[in-house]
Simulated scan of single mutants.
Amino acid sequence: METQACPLPLLPLFFSMFLTIYLVAYFIVFRYWSPKNRPEASSCLISLAHGTPAVLLATYSILADSNPDFASPNTEHQNLVLDYSIAYFLMDLLHFIVFNPSDVLFIAHHLATLFVFVTCRYLVSHGAYAILVLLILAEVTSACQNTWTLANARKNDVVFAAKLYGLLSAPFYTVYSIVRGLVGPYFVYKMFTFYASGAAKSVIPKWVWVSWIAVILTAISVSILWVSNLWAEFYRERTGKLDKKIR
């Protein structure tokens, strides 16, 4: 029987990488930004370093799996992506605890997300296909979202930032709404029907997959509420500008 080589401790390495990016962002890249915006901007930079690479890595790991399903064992590549994402969420959780300890919603979101990733990676070692598809759906808008967030932070100070914010808002809201409001819920429904059928009971305990579904549905609900508020604000801004032109 062929033995598997002992995997390298990638989680500490990934965490060190995100910590370094954050410190470089805070002390060098955004050193002239206001104390209010500096931490958020630094968080955006590590989010950029995680989002698109995570989408590409997760997509590759799924395509490289010969027969993925909701109960298939995690492959080595899939575990690597999980470690990459765990390291990012740990680093961003640290950011919120240090700079925004009152932001209970985001701290709870990160803790819940870490619970899903850690149980999939280190407890059951199955189901990464489902978790990584959801990761792709969550992070596919990451580059646009973080650019939009940085532009939003400086739109009152920099003309280019204001123009970029206006240019990105509608396309970002649209894609985000489709992914989080339609594609995501449909995929979670497919997950639920598979797990509820008992097809994975020998490898993923019921309490684990029920917890996953609960966490994911809560995250999707919060995302839909968030983007709905953004659409409402977008409509008010456009209506206000139109009223001013008419007058």
Rank of each mutant, 00 (worst) to 15 (best):
C44L: 02
C120E: 12
H109S: 01
I136E: 01
S202D: 14
D103V: 07
F234N: 11
I220Y: 06
R236P: 00
S43A: 10
V118C: 10
F106D: 08
S211Y: 06
N146C: 09
P35R: 05
P68E: 02
L56P: 01
I131S: 05
V175Y: 04
F160T: 05
L45E: 03
K190S: 08
I246D: 11
Y84E: 11
L8W: 12
A5L: 15
F194E: 11
L132F: 02
T239W: 07
F192Y: 15
L8G: 09
S43Q: 09
A5S: 12
F187E: 04
F18H: 10
A153E: 04
A232F: 03
P39C: 01
T218W: 14
E76R: 14
P171E: 02
A196Y: 04
L63F: 14
L114Q: 01
V116Q: 04
L132H: 08
Y88W: 13
A200Q: 10
S142G: 08
F160M: 07
A58Y: 07
I204R: 06
T119W: 11
Y22W: 10
I220G: 05
Y189M: 04
V175W: 00
T75V: 05
T149C: 03
I178Q: 00
T141F: 06
F30R: 05
L111P: 02
A170W: 06
L167W: 14
I46W: 03
M1I: 07
